[in-house]
Amino acid sequence: MNTFDCVIVGAGPAGLSAGLTLGRARRYIAVMDNGTNRNRVTQQSHGYLTRDGITPQAFKEAGVNELKNYPSVSYFHTTVTGIRKEFGGERMIVRTMDDETFYTEKVILATGVQEEFPFPSVREFYGKSLFSCPYCDGWEMKDQPLIIIADKEEHTMHMARLIYNWSSDLIVATNGVELSKDCAQELKERKIIIKTEPIKSLNGHNGYLEKIEFKTGETISRSGGFVVPSFYRPNQFAKHLGCEIDEDGTVATDGAGRTTSKNVYIAGETEKSASSSLIISAADGQKAAVSVNTDITLERF
C-alpha cells in the first residue's frame, strides 16, 4: 500500500526543499510533480546563491537527484487529480491521473502558480526577451531599449521606477489605460515615453522581441522588456481541503506553512498566489517541512 507520512504536491524549489528536509528527518515522503513549473520557459534562473545562471531544468534535476540520497523519499512524475480527507480527517487520500491511490497523514501543497497575460502573443517571447521579474532578469537586460507592458497604473509606476535602475531607455505601454496626470508627469520628467494606445501585436523571431505594433498602425522598436501578468493557482486543492483563503487570495497560515485545515501545509508561490524567487520559495518549503516534522514528532512521541 502506498502509505506515507507526507505527500508533497509539486517539485519546484518549495517542494524539493521540503522533500529534502523531511527526507533528512527520516520521514516517509512522496514528492509528486507533472513538470509544469512556471519557470520552465526561462533560459536561466538567477539570484539563487551558488546556482546563479543555472537552467530551470538543471536546477530541478539537481534537486531530484539530491532526494535520491534519502531512501525514505519517493519521487513520482505524475499529476495529482484529487486530495480528500478521510478517517476523521486524520488521514488523506491522494489520487493521480495514473489511477494510483496514496494514503498520507500530511500534505504540503507546493504546486506554484501560473501566469495570465494581457494578450496571448506575450507567450511567444516570455522567458527569452520578455520577463516579469527585474530581480531575476534585469541584469541581462541592462542598458537595452525596453518596453514595460502593464495595464494598471500602480503596476506601471512600480515597474518603471524599478527597471529605470537597469535601463533608462524605457517605453511604457498601458494597452489602452490612461495614466493620471501626476504619474504621467513623473515618467515624462525622466524621458520615459508613454504609449496608451492598445497593442495590436508583438513582432520578432525565435522568442526575441523586435517591434511592437499598436492598433493605430504605429510600430516601435524594442529588444525586450517586462510585462506584469496576473497569477492563478492551477488547482483548487487548498479550497477543497477547507483552507481559509483571504480576500486577496492568500491562503491563511501561521507563518510556518500550517494552514487552517489540519494536516494541510502550504509553501512557495501557492500560498500567496503570486510570484516569488527560487530562494524564497525554497526557504518557504524548508519552513513547512519543519512544521510537518514537528507536528509528527509531537503526535507520535
Rank of each mutant, 00 (worst) to 15 (best):
232 Y>I: 12
176 G>P: 04
46 H>M: 05
260 T>A: 12
130 L>N: 05
255 G>Q: 12
63 G>I: 12
44 Q>D: 12
122 V>L: 00
82 G>C: 12
88 G>F: 00
46 H>F: 03
168 S>E: 15
87 F>I: 12
297 T>H: 11
270 T>W: 01
51 R>M: 14
266 I>Q: 06
52 D>V: 09
230 S>N: 11
115 E>I: 06
25 A>V: 11
78 T>K: 08
157 M>T: 10
57 Q>C: 02
280 I>D: 11
68 K>E: 14
85 K>Y: 00
16 L>P: 05
99 D>H: 11
228 V>H: 02
107 V>D: 01
201 S>V: 12
11 A>F: 03
102 F>R: 08
145 P>L: 09
295 D>C: 12
241 L>N: 04
217 G>P: 09
184 A>Y: 02
273 S>P: 03
265 Y>G: 09
159 M>E: 07
115 E>A: 11
97 M>Y: 05
209 L>R: 07
51 R>Y: 08
259 T>H: 09
94 V>H: 00
148 I>C: 06
263 N>W: 06
188 K>M: 11
31 V>N: 02
260 T>V: 13
152 K>L: 04
220 I>P: 04
101 T>R: 08
146 L>F: 05
216 T>N: 03
38 R>V: 04
222 R>K: 14
300 R>E: 15
259 T>F: 06
177 V>E: 02
145 P>T: 11
88 G>A: 03
269 E>A: 15
264 V>Y: 05
261 S>Q: 13
87 F>M: 14
118 P>F: 02
84 R>M: 07
98 D>T: 13
213 E>A: 07
122 V>P: 00
239 K>Y: 06
220 I>W: 01
31 V>Q: 04
124 E>F: 03
64 V>N: 00
112 G>I: 10
127 G>W: 00
258 R>L: 13
227 V>S: 01
131 F>C: 00
279 I>R: 07
218 E>S: 08
294 T>L: 13
8 I>M: 08
121 S>W: 00
153 E>A: 02
44 Q>A: 14
116 E>K: 13
171 I>W: 04
261 S>F: 03
97 M>Q: 12
140 E>M: 10
27 R>I: 10
250 T>G: 07
5 D>N: 09
52 D>Q: 04
192 I>Q: 03
301 F>R: 14
245 I>N: 09
88 G>H: 03
222 R>M: 07
81 T>M: 02
265 Y>Q: 08
57 Q>W: 04
292 V>D: 11
178 E>S: 15
148 I>K: 10
43 Q>G: 14
139 W>Q: 11
59 F>I: 09
300 R>V: 15
50 T>K: 04
151 D>L: 00
90 E>N: 15
66 E>D: 15
169 D>E: 15
61 E>Q: 14
251 V>F: 04
104 T>F: 03
117 F>C: 05
174 T>K: 09
215 K>P: 00
231 F>A: 03
223 S>M: 11
